[in-house]
Simulated assay, not measured.
Amino acid sequence: MRDLSAFTLAGYDKGRGTLVQALWFAVMNTVFMAWFTPARLRVALLRAFGAEIGQGVLIRHRVRVLWPWKLRIGDHAWIGEGAWILNLEPVTLGAHVCVSQEALLCTGSHDHRAADFRYRNAPITVGDGAWIAARATVLAGVKVGRCAVVGAGAVLHQDLPDLTLHTADNRRRPVEEPA
């Protein structure tokens, strides 16, 4: 029997104090996600809160990032409108990665076998040139390979090798190296 009253935050480090967390939420929900905020300012705000971001990164509006200090983005990556990076643990996006509209990268989970439903979180790594397509979900602990593709609407719960397409119907097939 599950006992949610026994749940604690044991083993989960938010990485910053309450004041910084509150300040980030205020900035994220007023300026960062707004349609009128220039993409350059979004990048600057993430950097100001501790994200490591390369050159030429494009971040569209309505993007949510739980903890910027647990985010690393390589050069020339794109993050599309409404994408959600739920990074209780580190998320690393390589160079030339595309995270499309409303995609979800979720490093948090729970141990369904434990009565207290304790956290079972793990980082996500997305290799150079990979594409997380529209409304795709990448779950905790997954590594997406170089130039791999997580197809639109797909849910990825295990590692995806380089140059592999994972589709919404849970099929995999090789893809060609981009020209």
Rank of each mutant, 00 (worst) to 15 (best):
F25W: 13
M28F: 09
T30S: 07
F32I: 09
A34D: 13
W35G: 15
T37D: 08
P38C: 01
R42Y: 09
V43M: 04
V43W: 07
A44S: 10
A44G: 08
L46F: 02
R47D: 02
A48N: 07
A51V: 04
I53T: 08
I53A: 00
G56V: 09
V57Q: 05
V57E: 07
L58P: 11
L58H: 15
H61G: 08
R64K: 13
R64G: 12
V65I: 10
V65D: 00
V65S: 00
L66Y: 08
L66H: 09
W67N: 09
P68W: 00
W69R: 01
W69F: 04
K70G: 00
L71K: 01
L71Q: 03
R72D: 03
G74F: 07
A77Y: 08
W78K: 12
I79D: 06
I79V: 12
I79G: 03
G80Y: 06
E81Q: 14
G82P: 06
G82V: 06
A83Y: 07
A83R: 06
A83G: 05
W84L: 14
W84I: 15
W84S: 10
W84Q: 13
L86Q: 13
L86A: 15
N87S: 02
E89R: 09
E89F: 05
T92M: 10
T92W: 12
G94I: 01
G94H: 07
A95P: 05
A95R: 12
H96E: 11
H96K: 12
C98V: 15
Q101D: 05
E102N: 12
L104E: 06
L105D: 05
C106T: 07
C106E: 06
H110W: 04
D111T: 03
H112Y: 15
D116K: 00
F117N: 01
Y119H: 14
R120H: 13
R120V: 09
N121I: 11
P123G: 07
